[in-house]
Amino acid sequence: MRKPHFFSCKTTPRSNSILVGCKFRIQETQKTGNLKNPAFRAVLLSFFLLFASCGTNTEVAQSPFVFITPVAVPQIFSITAKYDNLDPHRPEYDLKYYVTNLEPQFVGYNLYITFAIPSAGETTSGANLYLENGVQPSFPQLAVQASTANVVTQTIENLQPFSPVQMFQKCEVYTFTLRALLNTGITSNMSTPITRCSTIYPDHCGTNTSCNPTACTTSSCSSSTQALCPVGTACNPCTKGVAATGCACPAGESPPGCNL
């Protein structure tokens, strides 16, 4: 602290005014010296920090976490061709699935039909989306319809039924997947892809076509090849179901030899 400066003043009656002036200068010098006192500055700093922190809630996270529950993924129960597409009938399919989604915003299922297993980018962009009347979803459903006892059957008559219409081609193999759709536009991940020939008699198709590859034209094929051949070929004949109905598996049966 800077020492105050004292002035010599005479204490005569006539110098009272001078004495008062001297006292004032001594007091003023002491006050200005307090600003350089470390203890005084610490007090001012504490008051500043106290008021600077006002209005800040330190007990609540400033950026709360948001948890998003993924949409339940549907599954195809079965997909089978309806007719022998070598006669006048054109190819069609019967699609069967259970309604399993319970989300309040659930509005139905979107069906995707491709020549190969679609990528995630293809399905999220709406490519190869099957639309009956040009609007989503492909099949309107509600959560109140959810049931694992009642199977839903949809007839798929065209590869693309809306503007322009594209029919299924004879002896061609198609892949089917489903995605659940919410009214917010969010979709689920795609179901397990199911690949099916467009005819119930693929062995009637020409050799080395999509439904009847060369490796599938012999009955003496290996088990690994059989697992890749369409049901109804010489390598994987229809043995557990009825060919006239697409070789659907009887209750309790599973491939090879029939389609689920």
Rank of each mutant, 00 (worst) to 15 (best):
Q141A: 10
T124L: 02
V135F: 12
L131T: 03
V151K: 06
T153G: 11
N128V: 02
F139W: 06
L129I: 14
I113S: 03
L131Q: 15
S125A: 14
P140F: 13
N150Q: 11
T148W: 09
S119W: 02
P140C: 10
T114I: 00
G134Q: 05
V151E: 03
G134I: 09
S125D: 12
L131D: 07
T153F: 04
V152P: 04
Y130W: 15
F139G: 02
V151Y: 04
P137C: 02
T124I: 08
A149M: 03
P137T: 09
A149W: 02
G121Q: 12
S119R: 09
F139V: 03
T114L: 06
V151F: 01
A143F: 09
T124A: 04
G126A: 03
E122R: 04
N128F: 12
I117R: 09
I113F: 05
L129M: 13
P118V: 03
T148L: 11
T123A: 10
S119Q: 03
T124D: 12
N133Q: 07
A146Q: 12
G121H: 01
A146P: 02
A149P: 00
V135H: 10
T153R: 13
V152Q: 07
E132Q: 14
P137G: 09
S125N: 13
P137E: 06
Y130H: 15
Q145T: 07
N133S: 15
V135L: 11
N133V: 08
A120H: 10
G121A: 15
V144M: 06
S125W: 03
L129H: 15
A127Y: 10
E122D: 11
S147V: 06
A146F: 00
G134M: 10
A143S: 15
G121I: 05
T123D: 06
Q141D: 14
Q141I: 01
A146D: 08
G134K: 04
G134P: 07
S138F: 02
F115A: 14
F115K: 15
N128A: 06
N150E: 08
N128C: 04
I113H: 01
P137D: 09
V152N: 06
P137R: 10
N128Q: 13
T153E: 13
A127I: 13
T123H: 00
I113L: 07
V135P: 02
A120W: 13
Q145Y: 07
F115S: 15
I113R: 05
V144F: 03
A120C: 09
T124Y: 03
E122P: 08
T123W: 00
L142A: 12
L129G: 09
T148D: 12
G126H: 08
V151H: 01
Y130E: 14
S119T: 15
I117V: 12
V151D: 02
T114C: 12
A146W: 00
S147E: 03
A149I: 02
